[in-house]
Design a protein around this nucleic acid. Structure first.
Lengths: 225, 225
DNA sequence: GCTATCCCCTAACAGTGTTAGGGCTCGGTA
DNA sequence: TACCGAGCCCTAACACTGTTAGGGGATAGC
Protein backbone atom coordinates (compact mmCIF):
# COMPACT_ATOMS: atom_id res chain seq x y z
CA UNK A 1 0.00 0.00 0.00
CA UNK A 2 2.15 2.88 -1.20
CA UNK A 3 -0.82 5.14 -0.66
CA UNK A 4 -0.33 6.98 2.63
CA UNK A 5 -2.81 9.62 3.62
CA UNK A 6 -1.39 13.11 4.04
CA UNK A 7 -1.66 12.93 7.83
CA UNK A 8 1.61 11.00 7.91
CA UNK A 9 3.32 12.19 4.79
CA UNK A 10 5.98 9.64 3.89
CA UNK A 11 8.91 9.89 6.25
CA UNK A 12 11.44 11.90 4.32
CA UNK A 13 14.44 13.94 5.38
CA UNK A 14 12.30 16.99 4.82
CA UNK A 15 9.51 15.73 7.09
CA UNK A 16 12.13 14.79 9.68
CA UNK A 17 13.57 18.28 9.57
CA UNK A 18 10.19 19.90 10.04
CA UNK A 19 9.46 17.60 12.98
CA UNK A 20 12.80 18.52 14.52
CA UNK A 21 11.91 22.18 14.04
CA UNK A 22 8.69 21.67 16.00
CA UNK A 23 10.48 19.85 18.82
CA UNK A 24 13.07 22.62 18.90
CA UNK A 25 10.38 25.23 19.26
CA UNK A 26 8.65 23.28 22.01
CA UNK A 27 11.54 21.93 24.08
CA UNK A 28 14.58 23.96 23.07
CA UNK A 29 17.93 22.68 21.87
CA UNK A 30 18.71 20.90 25.13
CA UNK A 31 15.39 19.10 24.96
CA UNK A 32 15.84 18.03 21.37
CA UNK A 33 16.51 14.29 21.43
CA UNK A 34 16.35 11.73 18.68
CA UNK A 35 13.62 9.91 20.56
CA UNK A 36 11.43 12.99 20.70
CA UNK A 37 11.91 13.79 17.04
CA UNK A 38 11.07 10.19 16.22
CA UNK A 39 7.94 10.34 18.36
CA UNK A 40 6.95 13.56 16.60
CA UNK A 41 6.79 11.70 13.30
CA UNK A 42 5.25 8.60 14.92
CA UNK A 43 8.27 6.35 14.79
CA UNK A 44 10.95 4.90 17.06
CA UNK A 45 14.34 6.51 17.50
CA UNK A 46 16.41 3.91 15.71
CA UNK A 47 14.44 4.45 12.54
CA UNK A 48 15.83 7.92 12.15
CA UNK A 49 19.23 6.50 11.40
CA UNK A 50 17.96 5.16 8.14
CA UNK A 51 17.36 8.70 6.92
CA UNK A 52 20.12 10.52 8.74
CA UNK A 53 23.68 9.56 9.57
CA UNK A 54 23.53 10.89 13.14
CA UNK A 55 22.13 13.67 15.27
CA UNK A 56 24.62 16.19 13.98
CA UNK A 57 23.41 15.69 10.44
CA UNK A 58 19.88 16.34 11.62
CA UNK A 59 21.09 19.55 13.25
CA UNK A 60 22.70 20.53 9.98
CA UNK A 61 19.40 20.09 8.20
CA UNK A 62 17.74 22.03 10.98
CA UNK A 63 20.22 24.86 10.59
CA UNK A 64 19.48 25.13 6.90
CA UNK A 65 15.74 24.92 7.54
CA UNK A 66 15.98 27.91 9.85
CA UNK A 67 17.92 29.86 7.24
CA UNK A 68 15.17 28.99 4.80
CA UNK A 69 12.84 31.20 6.84
CA UNK A 70 14.94 34.27 6.13
CA UNK A 71 13.24 36.92 4.05
CA UNK A 72 15.77 39.20 2.39
CA UNK A 73 14.83 42.88 2.56
CA UNK A 74 13.93 44.81 -0.58
CA UNK A 75 16.78 46.26 -2.58
CA UNK A 76 17.37 49.91 -1.95
CA UNK A 77 19.35 52.77 -3.34
CA UNK A 78 20.85 53.51 0.06
CA UNK A 79 23.24 50.65 0.78
CA UNK A 80 23.45 51.56 4.46
CA UNK A 81 19.72 51.36 4.98
CA UNK A 82 19.69 48.10 3.09
CA UNK A 83 22.44 46.44 5.12
CA UNK A 84 20.94 47.86 8.28
CA UNK A 85 17.66 46.19 7.52
CA UNK A 86 19.52 43.06 6.58
CA UNK A 87 21.17 42.82 9.99
CA UNK A 88 17.93 43.56 11.77
CA UNK A 89 16.07 40.84 9.91
CA UNK A 90 18.80 38.34 10.55
CA UNK A 91 18.71 39.09 14.25
CA UNK A 92 14.90 38.86 14.24
CA UNK A 93 15.11 35.47 12.60
CA UNK A 94 17.50 34.20 15.25
CA UNK A 95 15.39 35.64 18.05
CA UNK A 96 12.02 34.45 16.76
CA UNK A 97 13.00 30.81 16.41
CA UNK A 98 13.87 29.22 19.70
CA UNK A 99 17.59 28.52 20.13
CA UNK A 100 18.12 29.33 16.46
CA UNK A 101 21.36 31.17 17.22
CA UNK A 102 22.84 28.17 18.97
CA UNK A 103 21.80 25.82 16.20
CA UNK A 104 23.14 28.00 13.40
CA UNK A 105 26.33 28.94 15.22
CA UNK A 106 27.04 25.41 16.34
CA UNK A 107 28.16 24.18 12.98
CA UNK A 108 28.66 25.64 9.55
CA UNK A 109 26.47 23.50 7.32
CA UNK A 110 26.77 24.68 3.73
CA UNK A 111 23.23 23.72 2.78
CA UNK A 112 21.35 25.24 -0.13
CA UNK A 113 19.69 27.94 1.97
CA UNK A 114 22.97 29.13 3.43
CA UNK A 115 24.35 29.34 -0.08
CA UNK A 116 21.34 31.40 -1.14
CA UNK A 117 21.78 33.77 1.76
CA UNK A 118 25.48 34.16 1.07
CA UNK A 119 24.90 34.72 -2.63
CA UNK A 120 22.33 37.39 -1.90
CA UNK A 121 24.57 39.07 0.65
CA UNK A 122 27.53 39.16 -1.70
CA UNK A 123 25.38 40.63 -4.45
CA UNK A 124 24.22 43.47 -2.24
CA UNK A 125 27.71 44.27 -1.04
CA UNK A 126 29.09 44.43 -4.55
CA UNK A 127 26.17 46.57 -5.65
CA UNK A 128 27.02 48.93 -2.81
CA UNK A 129 30.41 49.43 -4.39
CA UNK A 130 32.69 47.24 -2.31
CA UNK A 131 35.66 45.62 -3.99
CA UNK A 132 35.68 41.87 -4.44
CA UNK A 133 38.08 41.33 -1.58
CA UNK A 134 36.20 43.69 0.72
CA UNK A 135 32.88 42.11 -0.21
CA UNK A 136 34.05 38.68 0.85
CA UNK A 137 35.41 39.99 4.14
CA UNK A 138 32.43 42.20 4.89
CA UNK A 139 30.10 39.26 4.41
CA UNK A 140 32.09 37.29 6.96
CA UNK A 141 32.11 40.20 9.38
CA UNK A 142 28.37 40.75 9.23
CA UNK A 143 27.61 37.08 9.82
CA UNK A 144 30.00 36.71 12.72
CA UNK A 145 28.86 39.96 14.29
CA UNK A 146 25.12 39.35 14.23
CA UNK A 147 25.48 35.77 15.42
CA UNK A 148 27.85 36.85 18.17
CA UNK A 149 25.50 39.59 19.27
CA UNK A 150 22.45 37.37 19.49
CA UNK A 151 24.38 34.61 21.20
CA UNK A 152 25.63 37.07 23.80
CA UNK A 153 22.19 38.58 24.12
CA UNK A 154 20.60 35.22 24.77
CA UNK A 155 23.21 33.73 27.06
CA UNK A 156 21.52 33.32 30.43
CA UNK A 157 22.87 35.15 33.45
CA UNK A 158 24.19 32.51 35.80
CA UNK A 159 23.23 34.16 39.07
CA UNK A 160 19.68 34.78 37.93
CA UNK A 161 18.31 31.30 37.40
CA UNK A 162 17.56 30.92 41.08
CA UNK A 163 14.18 32.49 40.64
CA UNK A 164 12.28 33.09 37.46
CA UNK A 165 13.59 36.59 37.17
CA UNK A 166 12.32 38.17 33.99
CA UNK A 167 14.53 39.92 31.48
CA UNK A 168 13.75 43.32 32.90
CA UNK A 169 14.51 42.30 36.44
CA UNK A 170 17.82 40.91 35.31
CA UNK A 171 18.90 44.31 34.08
CA UNK A 172 17.84 45.83 37.37
CA UNK A 173 19.66 43.16 39.33
CA UNK A 174 22.79 43.67 37.24
CA UNK A 175 22.52 47.39 37.85
CA UNK A 176 22.30 46.81 41.57
CA UNK A 177 25.27 44.46 41.37
CA UNK A 178 27.41 47.02 39.56
CA UNK A 179 26.39 49.87 41.81
CA UNK A 180 27.11 47.77 44.86
CA UNK A 181 30.70 47.05 43.86
CA UNK A 182 33.48 48.69 45.86
CA UNK A 183 34.14 51.95 44.07
CA UNK A 184 37.82 51.76 44.89
CA UNK A 185 38.28 48.51 43.00
CA UNK A 186 35.64 48.95 40.31
CA UNK A 187 35.15 52.67 39.82
CA UNK A 188 34.13 52.45 36.16
CA UNK A 189 31.69 49.61 36.60
CA UNK A 190 30.00 51.41 39.46
CA UNK A 191 29.93 54.72 37.68
CA UNK A 192 28.71 53.39 34.35
CA UNK A 193 26.18 50.98 35.86
CA UNK A 194 23.25 52.84 34.40
CA UNK A 195 24.79 53.00 30.94
CA UNK A 196 25.78 49.34 31.09
CA UNK A 197 22.37 48.03 32.01
CA UNK A 198 20.05 50.78 30.88
CA UNK A 199 19.69 50.49 27.09
CA UNK A 200 17.57 47.56 26.00
CA UNK A 201 18.88 45.07 23.51
CA UNK A 202 17.26 46.73 20.52
CA UNK A 203 19.06 49.97 21.29
CA UNK A 204 22.35 48.14 21.77
CA UNK A 205 21.99 46.33 18.51
CA UNK A 206 21.20 49.57 16.76
CA UNK A 207 24.38 51.09 18.15
CA UNK A 208 26.53 48.13 17.20
CA UNK A 209 25.14 47.86 13.69
CA UNK A 210 25.80 51.54 13.11
CA UNK A 211 29.41 51.12 14.21
CA UNK A 212 29.97 48.16 11.93
CA UNK A 213 28.39 49.99 9.01
CA UNK A 214 30.55 53.02 9.76
CA UNK A 215 33.56 50.76 9.68
CA UNK A 216 32.55 49.29 6.34
CA UNK A 217 31.82 52.73 4.92
CA UNK A 218 35.45 53.73 5.24
CA UNK A 219 36.25 51.14 2.59
CA UNK A 220 34.16 52.87 -0.03
CA UNK A 221 35.36 55.74 -2.18
CA UNK A 222 34.14 58.98 -0.64
CA UNK A 223 31.49 59.62 -3.27
CA UNK A 224 29.71 56.35 -2.60
CA UNK A 225 29.41 56.52 1.14
CA UNK B 1 44.14 13.83 60.17
CA UNK B 2 43.46 17.25 58.67
CA UNK B 3 46.97 17.12 57.28
CA UNK B 4 46.76 16.20 53.61
CA UNK B 5 49.93 16.22 51.56
CA UNK B 6 49.93 18.65 48.68
CA UNK B 7 49.49 15.88 46.13
CA UNK B 8 45.75 15.88 46.82
CA UNK B 9 45.19 19.43 47.97
CA UNK B 10 41.93 19.52 49.90
CA UNK B 11 38.99 19.32 47.55
CA UNK B 12 37.92 22.92 47.16
CA UNK B 13 35.90 24.68 44.50
CA UNK B 14 39.19 26.06 43.23
CA UNK B 15 40.74 22.61 42.90
CA UNK B 16 37.59 21.39 41.22
CA UNK B 17 37.75 24.20 38.71
CA UNK B 18 41.36 23.48 37.86
CA UNK B 19 40.56 19.80 37.40
CA UNK B 20 37.69 20.71 35.10
CA UNK B 21 40.07 22.92 33.16
CA UNK B 22 42.40 19.97 32.62
CA UNK B 23 39.57 17.70 31.51
CA UNK B 24 38.38 20.40 29.15
CA UNK B 25 41.80 20.67 27.60
CA UNK B 26 42.05 16.91 27.21
CA UNK B 27 38.54 15.89 26.13
CA UNK B 28 36.86 19.08 25.00
CA UNK B 29 33.55 20.47 26.15
CA UNK B 30 31.55 17.52 24.86
CA UNK B 31 33.79 15.13 26.75
CA UNK B 32 33.58 17.08 29.98
CA UNK B 33 31.43 15.02 32.34
CA UNK B 34 30.98 15.21 36.06
CA UNK B 35 32.35 11.69 36.39
CA UNK B 36 35.56 12.60 34.59
CA UNK B 37 36.09 15.74 36.61
CA UNK B 38 35.50 13.73 39.75
CA UNK B 39 38.00 11.09 38.65
CA UNK B 40 40.51 13.85 37.93
CA UNK B 41 40.47 14.83 41.59
CA UNK B 42 40.30 11.21 42.76
CA UNK B 43 36.69 11.15 43.86
CA UNK B 44 33.30 9.85 42.73
CA UNK B 45 30.84 11.94 40.77
CA UNK B 46 28.22 12.40 43.45
CA UNK B 47 30.76 14.03 45.71
CA UNK B 48 31.02 17.02 43.43
CA UNK B 49 27.52 18.03 44.34
CA UNK B 50 28.66 18.87 47.81
CA UNK B 51 30.87 21.64 46.44
CA UNK B 52 28.83 22.67 43.43
CA UNK B 53 25.11 23.00 42.87
CA UNK B 54 25.17 21.38 39.43
CA UNK B 55 27.21 21.08 36.27
CA UNK B 56 26.24 24.52 35.08
CA UNK B 57 27.72 26.09 38.16
CA UNK B 58 30.95 24.24 37.47
CA UNK B 59 30.91 25.61 33.94
CA UNK B 60 30.44 29.09 35.36
CA UNK B 61 33.51 28.64 37.49
CA UNK B 62 35.33 27.28 34.47
CA UNK B 63 34.34 30.31 32.45
CA UNK B 64 35.75 32.65 35.04
CA UNK B 65 38.89 30.54 35.35
CA UNK B 66 39.52 30.93 31.63
CA UNK B 67 39.04 34.68 31.88
CA UNK B 68 41.56 34.65 34.70
CA UNK B 69 44.21 33.68 32.15
CA UNK B 70 43.70 36.91 30.23
CA UNK B 71 46.67 39.24 30.23
CA UNK B 72 45.65 42.80 29.46
CA UNK B 73 47.99 44.56 27.03
CA UNK B 74 50.13 47.49 28.17
CA UNK B 75 48.52 50.92 28.13
CA UNK B 76 49.40 52.99 25.14
CA UNK B 77 49.07 56.50 23.88
CA UNK B 78 47.44 55.28 20.69
CA UNK B 79 43.99 54.01 21.64
CA UNK B 80 43.55 52.20 18.36
CA UNK B 81 46.71 50.19 18.77
CA UNK B 82 45.72 49.44 22.32
CA UNK B 83 42.23 48.18 21.50
CA UNK B 84 43.60 46.32 18.52
CA UNK B 85 45.99 44.46 20.75
CA UNK B 86 43.17 43.94 23.21
CA UNK B 87 41.02 42.17 20.64
CA UNK B 88 43.91 40.08 19.42
CA UNK B 89 44.77 38.89 22.89
CA UNK B 90 41.18 38.05 23.65
CA UNK B 91 40.96 35.99 20.49
CA UNK B 92 44.25 34.31 21.31
CA UNK B 93 42.95 33.38 24.73
CA UNK B 94 39.84 31.81 23.25
CA UNK B 95 41.84 29.94 20.63
CA UNK B 96 44.56 28.69 22.94
CA UNK B 97 42.24 27.09 25.47
CA UNK B 98 40.24 24.26 24.01
CA UNK B 99 36.56 25.10 23.55
CA UNK B 100 37.05 28.27 25.56
CA UNK B 101 34.79 30.24 23.23
CA UNK B 102 31.92 27.81 23.74
CA UNK B 103 32.36 27.80 27.48
CA UNK B 104 32.55 31.57 27.80
CA UNK B 105 29.76 32.24 25.32
CA UNK B 106 27.48 29.60 26.75
CA UNK B 107 26.53 31.57 29.81
CA UNK B 108 27.29 34.96 31.23
CA UNK B 109 28.75 34.26 34.64
CA UNK B 110 29.61 37.51 36.38
CA UNK B 111 32.53 36.10 38.31
CA UNK B 112 35.35 38.21 39.69
CA UNK B 113 37.58 37.77 36.66
CA UNK B 114 34.89 38.88 34.24
CA UNK B 115 34.35 41.95 36.39
CA UNK B 116 38.06 42.67 36.29
CA UNK B 117 38.16 42.37 32.53
CA UNK B 118 35.13 44.62 32.14
CA UNK B 119 36.51 47.19 34.51
CA UNK B 120 39.78 47.28 32.64
CA UNK B 121 38.04 47.54 29.30
CA UNK B 122 35.83 50.41 30.41
CA UNK B 123 38.82 52.25 31.77
CA UNK B 124 40.67 52.05 28.48
CA UNK B 125 37.66 53.17 26.47
CA UNK B 126 37.10 56.20 28.67
CA UNK B 127 40.78 57.06 28.53
CA UNK B 128 40.51 56.94 24.75
CA UNK B 129 37.96 59.71 24.97
CA UNK B 130 34.65 57.91 24.54
CA UNK B 131 31.62 59.26 26.33
CA UNK B 132 30.13 57.29 29.18
CA UNK B 133 27.27 55.99 27.07
CA UNK B 134 29.55 55.13 24.15
CA UNK B 135 32.02 53.43 26.44
CA UNK B 136 29.36 51.09 27.78
CA UNK B 137 28.13 50.25 24.31
CA UNK B 138 31.57 49.86 22.79
CA UNK B 139 32.52 47.42 25.50
CA UNK B 140 29.51 45.32 24.65
CA UNK B 141 30.28 45.49 20.95
CA UNK B 142 33.87 44.39 21.33
CA UNK B 143 32.93 41.42 23.49
CA UNK B 144 30.14 40.23 21.24
CA UNK B 145 32.22 40.71 18.14
CA UNK B 146 35.33 38.82 19.23
CA UNK B 147 33.32 35.97 20.70
CA UNK B 148 31.18 35.77 17.60
CA UNK B 149 34.22 35.75 15.36
CA UNK B 150 36.00 32.97 17.23
CA UNK B 151 32.83 30.92 17.51
CA UNK B 152 32.28 31.20 13.78
CA UNK B 153 35.93 30.50 13.12
CA UNK B 154 35.86 27.33 15.18
CA UNK B 155 32.51 25.97 14.08
CA UNK B 156 33.27 22.76 12.22
CA UNK B 157 32.30 22.41 8.59
CA UNK B 158 29.64 19.77 8.45
CA UNK B 159 30.61 18.19 5.17
CA UNK B 160 34.24 17.89 6.18
CA UNK B 161 34.17 15.56 9.13
CA UNK B 162 34.08 12.54 6.88
CA UNK B 163 37.82 12.42 6.72
CA UNK B 164 40.29 14.14 8.94
CA UNK B 165 40.59 17.02 6.56
CA UNK B 166 42.89 19.61 8.02
CA UNK B 167 42.09 23.30 8.28
CA UNK B 168 43.99 24.11 5.09
CA UNK B 169 42.26 21.39 3.12
CA UNK B 170 38.91 22.66 4.28
CA UNK B 171 39.57 26.03 2.68
CA UNK B 172 40.60 24.28 -0.52
CA UNK B 173 37.53 22.08 -0.47
CA UNK B 174 35.29 25.07 0.16
CA UNK B 175 36.95 26.85 -2.75
CA UNK B 176 36.28 23.89 -4.99
CA UNK B 177 32.68 23.80 -3.79
CA UNK B 178 32.12 27.47 -4.55
CA UNK B 179 33.82 27.30 -7.91
CA UNK B 180 31.79 24.25 -8.84
CA UNK B 181 28.45 25.95 -8.25
CA UNK B 182 26.29 26.77 -11.27
CA UNK B 183 27.35 30.26 -12.27
CA UNK B 184 23.84 31.11 -13.37
CA UNK B 185 22.41 30.55 -9.89
CA UNK B 186 25.42 31.54 -7.80
CA UNK B 187 27.47 33.96 -9.88
CA UNK B 188 28.90 35.86 -6.93
CA UNK B 189 29.87 32.81 -4.91
CA UNK B 190 31.60 31.29 -7.89
CA UNK B 191 33.35 34.50 -8.83
CA UNK B 192 34.47 35.41 -5.31
CA UNK B 193 35.47 31.88 -4.35
CA UNK B 194 39.11 32.78 -4.02
CA UNK B 195 38.40 35.85 -1.92
CA UNK B 196 35.98 33.91 0.26
CA UNK B 197 38.34 31.08 1.06
CA UNK B 198 41.74 32.59 0.43
CA UNK B 199 42.58 34.78 3.42
CA UNK B 200 43.45 32.86 6.53
CA UNK B 201 41.66 33.53 9.78
CA UNK B 202 44.32 35.89 11.09
CA UNK B 203 43.92 38.11 8.06
CA UNK B 204 40.14 38.02 8.36
CA UNK B 205 40.27 38.94 11.98
CA UNK B 206 42.63 41.78 11.22
CA UNK B 207 40.18 43.09 8.65
CA UNK B 208 37.19 42.81 10.96
CA UNK B 209 38.93 44.43 13.90
CA UNK B 210 39.96 47.35 11.75
CA UNK B 211 36.35 47.84 10.61
CA UNK B 212 35.03 47.77 14.14
CA UNK B 213 37.69 50.21 15.27
CA UNK B 214 36.88 52.46 12.34
CA UNK B 215 33.28 52.37 13.40
CA UNK B 216 34.15 53.30 16.95
CA UNK B 217 36.48 56.07 15.80
CA UNK B 218 33.58 57.97 14.27
CA UNK B 219 32.25 58.49 17.79
CA UNK B 220 35.30 60.44 18.88
CA UNK B 221 35.79 64.13 18.29
CA UNK B 222 37.95 64.62 15.21
CA UNK B 223 41.04 65.64 17.15
CA UNK B 224 41.17 62.44 19.18
CA UNK B 225 40.84 59.93 16.40
C1' DG C 1 31.99 9.93 75.45
C1' DC C 2 28.49 12.17 72.90
C1' DT C 3 27.01 14.89 69.21
C1' DA C 4 26.98 17.53 65.16
C1' DT C 5 29.07 18.78 61.01
C1' DC C 6 31.55 17.85 57.07
C1' DC C 7 32.59 15.13 53.25
C1' DC C 8 32.56 11.26 50.51
C1' DC C 9 30.44 6.95 49.28
C1' DT C 10 27.06 3.33 46.86
C1' DA C 11 22.97 2.71 44.34
C1' DA C 12 19.76 4.06 41.61
C1' DC C 13 16.69 6.74 38.18
C1' DA C 14 15.53 8.52 33.96
C1' DG C 15 17.32 9.84 30.05
C1' DT C 16 20.91 10.22 26.05
C1' DG C 17 23.13 8.81 21.09
C1' DT C 18 23.98 4.88 18.59
C1' DT C 19 24.35 0.07 16.73
C1' DA C 20 23.18 -4.91 15.69
C1' DG C 21 20.13 -7.70 13.99
C1' DG C 22 15.38 -9.18 12.94
C1' DG C 23 11.12 -8.87 10.27
C1' DC C 24 7.57 -6.89 7.49
C1' DT C 25 5.96 -5.13 3.10
C1' DC C 26 6.57 -3.69 -1.15
C1' DG C 27 8.21 -3.71 -6.69
C1' DG C 28 10.16 -6.30 -10.05
C1' DT C 29 11.44 -10.60 -12.22
C1' DA C 30 11.70 -15.53 -13.48
C1' DT D 1 2.47 -17.52 -9.13
C1' DA D 2 6.65 -17.80 -6.50
C1' DC D 3 10.60 -15.77 -5.29
C1' DC D 4 14.00 -12.21 -4.23
C1' DG D 5 15.96 -8.14 -2.94
C1' DA D 6 15.52 -3.56 -1.41
C1' DG D 7 13.50 -0.25 1.59
C1' DC D 8 11.98 0.83 5.99
C1' DC D 9 10.86 0.21 10.62
C1' DC D 10 11.19 -2.46 14.80
C1' DT D 11 13.14 -4.45 19.56
C1' DA D 12 16.97 -4.82 22.50
C1' DA D 13 20.89 -3.50 24.08
C1' DC D 14 25.36 -0.80 25.25
C1' DA D 15 27.78 2.65 27.33
C1' DC D 16 27.13 6.83 28.70
C1' DT D 17 25.04 11.25 30.96
C1' DG D 18 23.33 14.60 35.14
C1' DT D 19 21.37 14.18 39.45
C1' DT D 20 19.33 12.60 43.96
C1' DA D 21 18.55 9.78 48.27
C1' DG D 22 20.45 7.98 51.88
C1' DG D 23 24.34 5.81 54.43
C1' DG D 24 28.79 5.95 56.87
C1' DG D 25 33.16 7.28 58.55
C1' DA D 26 36.08 10.81 60.23
C1' DT D 27 36.75 15.04 62.72
C1' DA D 28 35.99 19.00 66.12
C1' DG D 29 33.73 20.88 70.14
C1' DC D 30 31.35 20.24 74.40
Amino acid sequence: MPENDDATPALTREALTQAALRVLERDGLDGLSMRKVAAEVGVKAASLYWHVRNKQELLDLLSDAILALAEPPPRQEDWRAELHEYCFRYRRLLLDNRDAAKVVAGRLAPGPCLLNVMEDQLDRLRAAGFSDADTAMASYLLGAFVQGFVLQEQSPISSAEVLGTSRRDIADAAGDLFRGLPTTQYPNLAELADHLTGPDMDARFEFCVQRVLDGLATLLPADRR
